[in-house]
Write a protein that binds this DNA or RNA. Structure first.
Length: 896
DNA sequence: GTAGGGTTAG
């Protein structure tokens, strides 16, 4: 069958077709076929390694019971990394073409198809064509061919007419059943699940639908729409009707579960049920089981592939692509590369899906250059890029800030006949927006509307996010107004973006109101929503920004209006009190007022409430939640130290309540944090080291956030030696890149606790150098704050400084990825530390982001008799059993 | 009856 469709086209439709009440909606979708590419031999240079590990999953670490006596997990859960997408687990791929390779249809059927798919033919004319060919079309074979092809061409309305036409003329029950199952399948593929159900019900009620084929088709139709419960309903129904599910029925239900993100254990039960009913799994069963592993179960995926081998089932390109997807989603890119080599060795040639899967993996792991080199490899192999691939390439270039290249890619894809879709435009909007190129954002947004690419909820979320982060609230509001006008339903991401905007502007209470509002609207908050608010409470967000009045939009719900009014009131209040607030903030630097102290305590309790609510809603906290809570505890510890009126015991109780909740994250993480805090370092150190190794597997931003948070809380609660050991483990694992040399210590990615612990370690190390008789460089420096101009020493003992002053000396950032401008806390902490220990460092005149010292001065100081003593750090608590707090049954002790 | 893409938190 010849294809007249252009090359380089995606087989994946850009969006889910709209549902309409009509049984067979008229929704024309341009159908495209995948370009068969020249499968030249894959020439990866990587050494091929077997992707199949031993069957054993018993890769458990040493046994360790947390203080709550929960068993240790063998790995950080996938959720914990904070990298798991909070989106729907699986994409819904409608409009995938159904191959119609059977030649059993007559030439007349092809003629009908040809005539029916001319652009000028409407539904009425199509009926006339069918009537004209009525005598020539032979039974269900011809009509099923027509139904499939009309489906492939995105013609649900004509398919509906054809089905009714055929089923009315067919006398045989079995043939009518075939027509029904084909029609259900066609509608399912088009995403018209209601139409599919209509056909199914009519067929069952009409006495020709009680076949395993119609039920399987219906299960599949539900599966494609992500309606797993409905699919299971049909699956159960077929059993009660006395129909025995066959291989296809089981495969369909497993696939439906995979698409909906059903837990592996549940799907495994279905698999077991299949075996016990004497139905042997085939390649497709395993391919679908592999898809269930996308929630992070990469080892299980590997085991399944092994099991396929044992059962003598060959792997195909679907097997490998799905396996690669699982592997890429857990960020194991080296393994992914090996698997790619393996598939080539087994003569399963990687295709465009293989490459886009792996490219996406590299991009998500932050290895953008590796991703780009995969495109080069595709080019060498003659594998044509399709729309998905082009969009991936575009997104990578935009992330790299290569705007010119990105625009060239747009031109290239157009030249190959691939139109920009909503994903392309969203990528452009986000890419330009994140770089503050708001003129381009405006242009692109206009352009997409001009070429009738309908903005979707992601478009609006992206725009609201970039405008809010840029402080362009009027523009954000305009976009929100347009969004409301478009009649789209807000989703969790859009709400989370709004909540974040409120939080970042100090309007945390309004953010909580909005959280309630979204919940009432039936939108379930996710871990990001909660992390946003927890983080804001933890920072004790000070309102430092002013916002213009926001005007409620027509059509806003009462909740939205009240939220906006609340924002306005808070904003006006801010403005009126701005001067007072500035003085107030200055005063706070010196001594904390009782009111603020109590507010801060309330915030701690709010976090506790939020955290418990998360638990209630079964929203699993991740490493970001963990860091935010530890940060809140550190902040609280600081306040307790400053405030003399609050009893230490009560304050510990408050912080304990919060910290205790950490076991909900992950018992092992909690166990390590708790053990270090309570001075049981010897007991937990082995577990700590294995935890650190696993954290290192996460991306550097996540890893450094983890180390910063953990070190901070240890430091603030007096476990300074523990903090130092942790920070050195981080250094050894390169969590902060190039942090340390003999002449320079770079602290700019560290939290204040981590930085102070590190300064002690660094000075001790230099001391050893001095005592060994080496000469120090002429100039020593440690850098704090947003010092992005670090130079390497030109030789071992000289640090070359750039005579450059930072734009704004107070723009210290708490960690590389913090989006909040801090208040110079790190600088103050280091300044205080250096003067406290008498180290002869001073702020560099030429660069206020650095403390510097002449080599001889430091040498002399290091050689002084008391210096060693002040440099050695100690923990306040080393004997937890001696602490009074331990006596309380329900609270975990905290040292101070 | 099976495979890949875009928005939010630190």
């Amino acid at each position: 069958m010849a294809s007249s469709t252009p090359p380089h086209c995606s087989i994946t439709a850009s969006s889910k077709p709209h549902k309409t009440p009509h049984p067979y909606p008229s929704h024309k979708t341009l159908q495209q076929q995948q370009q068969p590419h020249n499968n030249r031999r894959f020439t990866s240079q990587k050494v091929s390694a077997s992707p199949i590990p031993s069957n054993s999953l018993s890769n458990k670490g040493p046994t360790f019971l947390s203080p709550l006596q929960s068993p240790e997990k063998s790995h950080l859960s996938h959720d914990f990394s904070g990298k798991k997408s909070t989106r729907f687990v699986s994409k819904l791929h409608f409009n995938r073409q159904r191959s119609n390779l059977s030649n059993r249809h007559s030439p007349a059927a092809e003629d009908v198809l040809y005539q029916a798919t001319q652009s000028s033919i409407d539904d009425h004319q199509f009926e006339t064509i069918l009537l004209g060919f009525e005598g020539k079309l032979c039974g269900s074979e011809d009509y099923c061919f027509l139904l499939r092809e009309l489906g492939n061409r995105g013609e649900p309305s004509k398919a509906g007419l054809c089905y009714e036409f055929a089923v009315q003329r067919e006398r045989k029950v079995s043939e009518r059943g075939k027509l029904a199952s084909t029609m259900i399948s066609v509608m399912g593929r088009l995403g018209n699940v209601d139409s599919a159900r209509f056909v199914f019900d009519s067929a069952v009620n009409g006495g020709y639908g009680n076949t395993v084929y119609t039920y399987s088709a219906m299960i599949s139709a539900y599966g494609r729409s992500g309606l797993c419960q409905e699919a299971i309903g049909v699956f159960e129904m077929m059993k009660t009707q006395g129909l025995k599910p066959n291989l296809v029925s089981y495969n369909a239900i497993i696939d439906a579960c995979a698409k909906a993100g059903v837990k592996y254990e549940v799907v495994n039960d279905i698999y077991d049920d299949m075996l016990s009913n004497g139905v042997d799994p085939d390649r497709i069963t395993f391919n679908s089981m592999l898809a269930v592993c996308r929630c992070g179960l990469w080892e299980e995926a590997m085991r399944l592939v092994t099991e396929m081998g044992i059962r003598g089932i060959d792997q195909d390109v679907f097997t490998y692509n799905t396996l690669l997807d699982v592997i890429c989603k857990v960020g194991k890119m080296d393994l992914a590369f090996d698997i790619m080599s393996e598939m080539t060795a087994k003569n399963v040639m990687p295709n465009v899906v293989t490459y886009s899967t792996v490219i996406d993996g590299f991009a998500k792991a932050g290895r953008l250059e590796d991703a780009l080199s995969m495109f080069e490899e595709m080019k060498c192999l003659g594998i044509a890029l399709d729309r998905v691939c082009y969009n991936a390439l575009l997104s990578i270039l935009l992330k790299l800030g290569k705007f010119k290249d990105a625009l060239n890619v747009c031109k290239e894809m157009e030249s190959f006949g691939i139109r920009k879709d909503v994903v392309t435009y969203n990528a452009l909007l986000g890419g330009f927006g994140k770089q503050g190129k708001y003129d381009e954002v405006k242009q692109v947004f206009e352009q997409m509307k001009n070429v009738r690419i309908l903005p979707n909820v992601l478009t609006y979320s992206t725009l609201i996010d970039v405008y809010s982060k840029g402080g362009l609230y009027r523009e954000a509001m305009e976009v929100f107004r347009e969004f409301k006008g478009a009649g789209l339903k807000a989703d969790v991401v859009l709400y989370s973006g709004l909540i974040d905007a409120l939080c970042k502007n100090g309007l945390v209470k309004s953010a909580v109101l909005l959280l309630d509002e979204m919940t009432k609207e039936g939108i379930r908050p996710n871990v990001v929503t909660y992390n946003t608010i927890i983080d804001a409470f933890g920072r004790s967000a000070r309102a430092e920004y002013l916002v213009d009045d926001i005007v409620p939009v027509d059509g806003c719900s009462a909740g939205e209006t009240s939220m906006i009014l609340a924002c306005n009131a808070a904003a006006r209040n801010l403005e009126h009190n701005k001067v007072m607030k500035i003085f107030g903030q200055l005063a706070v630097e010196k001594s904390l007022s009782a009111r603020e102290f109590n507010e801060s305590r309330q915030e701690l309790l709010c976090i506790l409430g939020l955290f418990q609510k998360m638990h209630q809603l079964e929203i699993k906290p991740n490493v970001v939640t963990f860091s935010a809570i530890l940060n809140a505890c550190s902040y609280w510890a600081d306040k307790v130290l400053i405030n003399a009126t609050y009893s230490r015991c009560n304050s510990l109780e408050d912080a304990s309540m919060l910290l205790e909740e950490l076991h909900l994250f992950d018992d092992r993480v909690y166990g390590v944090a708790h053990g270090l805090l309570t001075g049981s370092r010897d007991t937990v150190w082995r577990q700590a080291l294995s935890l650190f190794d696993e954290v290192k597997q996460l991306d550097t931003a996540t890893a450094s956030a983890f180390y910063n948070a953990l070190t901070d809380v240890l430091w603030h609660f007096g476990q300074k030696r523990g903090a130092q050991l942790v920070v050195l483990e981080g250094k050894n694992r390169n969590v902060w890149e190039n942090v340390w040399s003999t002449s320079c210590l770079d602290l700019h990615l560290m939290s204040s606790g981590a930085a102070r612990a590190m300064v002690h370690a660094w000075l001790l190390s230099i001391r050893s150098v001095v005592l060994e008789g080496h000469e120090l460089p002429k100039l020593l420096s440690n850098t704090s704050g947003a010092c992005e101009y670090i130079d390497k020493a030109i030789d071992a003992f000289v640090l070359k400084l750039k005579p450059q002053i930072l734009d704004d000396e107070l723009r210290y950032r708490w960690g590389k990825h913090s989006k909040v401008v801090g208040d110079g806390a790190l600088k103050r902490a280091i300044e205080g530390l250096l003067s406290g220990i008498g180290a002869p460092f001073h702020l560099a005149e030429t660069n206020l982001g650095r403390f510097i010292s002449q080599g001889p001065a430091v040498t002399a100081w290091l050689k002084k008799s008391g210096t060693l003593q002040v440099l050695l750090l100690q923990d306040i608590t080393t004997q937890p059993e001696n602490r009074r707090l331990d006596q309380r049954p329900n609270l975990q002790p905290l040292p101070l």
